[in-house]
Amino acid sequence: MLTDTLPFLPATVAPDAPAWAPHGANGLVQSLMGVAEAAALVRSGRPCCIAGDAQALRSLPPGRWIGGSIPYFMAEQGGLCSREQVFVTELPQLPPGAGDGAWVQRYTRETLSRVCTDAPAHGFSLIVLPAFSAVHEAFAQEAPDYPEMYQRPLLGWVAGLHLDDLGQALPGVMHGPDGRWLHDEAVVLHVPVSPALQAHLDIVNPFEPSSGPGIVFDAGGFSAGDCLIDGQPANLHDWLLAGGADTRLPLVADYCGAMVNVSIKALDAAAHRVDFYAPVFPGVVYRCARPLPDYVAAFERALARQQPPGTLVMSCNCILNYLHGGLEGRTLGAMRGPATFGEIAYQLLNQTLVYLTLVEA
């Protein structure tokens, strides 16, 4: 059931605002820009995803777009924080006469499991979720079991806040067609592509598991205490403290051949509990990550090994990489996009770069 939220705020762009002009690869925008320029792009009818501060997003006109709150970006000039500018990612359109192209949908916790069955048969879907919400929690724990998951490319990110605003405001997402500002729903842009192209979704994880002991949990979730460490009963909170672990480093596990991180949010001394930014799953062997002497060098090595194919459409990186890696003012090759509170490549990820390319089928 769709819910009503805050009313749409009319655009504040002047009538003589500059017209939008493409300046991305192959005419697709992947750029940080002012609100006036973003509004012109929205009015042009092009499908897009826009990241920015809540006030900036809510000043944009209605259109075929989705958005999420975050003021941290990896831009052409390097990592930066801005409350006034927004990062716009334009999505591809079908050739004339090939169909209606991309469409936007809203999902509640109860309807989110349909996200992949609703997806185009040939294309991909881009999802944005508000952090700390019920729909965020549901997706994190249940997405691997959604119908058609892993059959159709699903990427996206988790909307957040300026770190100074934590505890004072809620992350939100924007449903562009009617200007709804939502705190507990997901917005999705379903994007069909030409049969001549294939969507290719991948991740860049600079972390590797250490050779330390394996950690296994009996129950999954966003927090944990009791567990098995090297097969022996232990408390994760106490074990991390006793070993002087660097909690900026995630736990890493092999999920069917892909190294996936679970980042540590906080240590709760009173409850002897560790809180995470993504859920752990029972029966999976986790290990503490190896330290990274140089974040950027680690990303560059990982990107060089993967050699991303085709035309880059979108990427997003984690706010923890932005902070812990000192990425302000530094670039990561051609990767541009928001620095988010979580990344999505089929399932929720942490401290990972996610990107999608289009390759010739």
Rank of each mutant, 00 (worst) to 15 (best):
S69F: 03
Q93G: 06
G67C: 11
R64Q: 07
V86T: 10
F87L: 04
S113N: 09
P95M: 10
W103M: 10
R83T: 08
P92E: 04
R114F: 06
L91S: 06
Q105P: 03
L60P: 11
T89E: 10
V88A: 09
Q105I: 13
V115W: 14
L112Y: 05
P95C: 05
R106N: 10
L57E: 04
Q85P: 12
D53N: 10
G67A: 12
A98F: 08
C48T: 10
L112R: 05
T111P: 00
G78E: 04
L60K: 00
P71R: 08
R46P: 01
Q55S: 14
D100M: 09
Q105V: 10
D53A: 06
Y72C: 08
G52N: 06
V115N: 14
R109N: 11
A51E: 00
L80R: 05
C81A: 14
P92A: 01
R46K: 15
G79F: 07
Q85F: 01
Q77I: 07
P62L: 01
R109S: 15
M74Q: 15
G63K: 06
Q77H: 12
V86A: 06
V115C: 15
M74H: 09
F87P: 05
T111H: 09
P61Y: 10
L91F: 13
R109Q: 15
Q55T: 12
G67L: 07
Y107R: 15
T108G: 14
L60G: 03
R114V: 02
V88N: 08
P92I: 11
V86N: 09
L112F: 06
T89S: 14
E84H: 13
D100A: 15
Q105D: 13
P61H: 09
S59K: 05
G67Q: 11
G67V: 11
C81F: 05
P62H: 08
G79K: 00
F73G: 01
G101L: 07
T89D: 07
A98I: 03
D53Q: 08
G68C: 11
Q55C: 11
P92Q: 01
F87G: 04
L94V: 04
A51G: 12
R64W: 02
P95V: 05
P61I: 15
A51H: 02
T89F: 07
G68N: 11
R109P: 14
P62E: 07
A102T: 04
V88F: 05
R58V: 00
C48N: 09
L94T: 07
A75H: 08
V86Q: 11
V86L: 07
E90G: 09
W65K: 08
W65M: 03
M74T: 05
P47G: 03
G79C: 03
